[in-house]
Simulated scan of single mutants.
Amino acid sequence: MEVLEVNNLKKIYTTRFGGNKVEALHDINFSVEQGEYVAIMGESGSGKTTLLNILAAVDRPTSGDIFLNGKNTTAIKDDMLAKFRREHLGFVFQDFNLLDTFSIEDNIYLPLVLAGKEYKDMKQELDVIAGKLGISHILHKYPYEVSGGQKQRTAVARAIITKPDILLADEPTGALDSKSTGDLLDVFDKLNSDGQTILMVTHSVRAASNAGRVLFIKDGEIFHQVYRGAMTKDEMYKKISDTLTVLLAGGDLHE
Rank of each mutant, 00 (worst) to 15 (best):
M1K: 07
E2L: 03
L4T: 14
E5P: 10
V6M: 03
V6E: 05
N7T: 08
N7G: 03
L9V: 13
K10P: 02
K11R: 09
I12W: 00
T14Q: 13
G18L: 12
V22W: 11
V22M: 11
E23A: 04
H26W: 05
D27Q: 08
I28K: 00
I28V: 15
N29T: 03
N29E: 07
S31G: 12
V32H: 02
V32A: 03
Q34W: 06
E36W: 08
E36Q: 14
A39L: 05
A39R: 01
G42W: 02
S46V: 05
G47Q: 10
G47K: 09
T50R: 00
N53V: 00
I54H: 05
L55N: 04
A56F: 07
A56L: 06
R60F: 06
R60M: 03
P61Y: 07
D65W: 01
I66L: 02
T73N: 08
D79M: 09
D79L: 08
M80R: 08
L81M: 09
G90V: 14
F91I: 14
F91S: 15
F91Q: 14
V92G: 04
V92W: 02
V92S: 04
Q94E: 11
F96V: 04
F96M: 06
L99K: 01
T101M: 03
S103H: 14
I104Y: 14
E105C: 12
D106R: 08
D106F: 00
D106I: 00
N107S: 12
I108S: 12
Y109S: 04
Y109D: 01
Y109G: 00
Y109N: 03
P111I: 03
P111D: 07
L112V: 00
L114R: 00
A115M: 00
G116S: 05
K117N: 07
K117F: 05
K123I: 01
Q124D: 13
D127L: 11
V128C: 04
V128L: 10
G131R: 08
K141A: 14
P143L: 07
P143S: 13
V146N: 09
G148A: 10
G149F: 06
Q150H: 06
Q152K: 00
Q152D: 05
A159I: 03
I160F: 06
T162R: 03
T162L: 00
K163G: 08
D165H: 10
L167Q: 10
L167M: 10
L168E: 13
P172G: 11
P172Q: 09
T173L: 10
T173N: 13
G174T: 12
S180C: 09
S180F: 09
T181F: 02
T181I: 03
T181A: 01
D183A: 11
L185S: 10
L185D: 15
D186Q: 14
V187D: 13
D189R: 10
D189T: 15
D194M: 15
G195S: 12
T197D: 02
L199R: 02
H203I: 04
S204W: 04
A208E: 12
V214G: 11
L215F: 03
I217C: 05
K218R: 09
E221P: 08
I222Y: 13
I222W: 14
Q225F: 14
V226G: 07
V226L: 12
G229P: 15
M231R: 14
T232M: 02
K233D: 01
Y237E: 01
K238T: 15
K238Q: 15
S241W: 01
D242E: 15
T245R: 08
V246P: 11
V246H: 11
A249P: 10
H254Y: 15
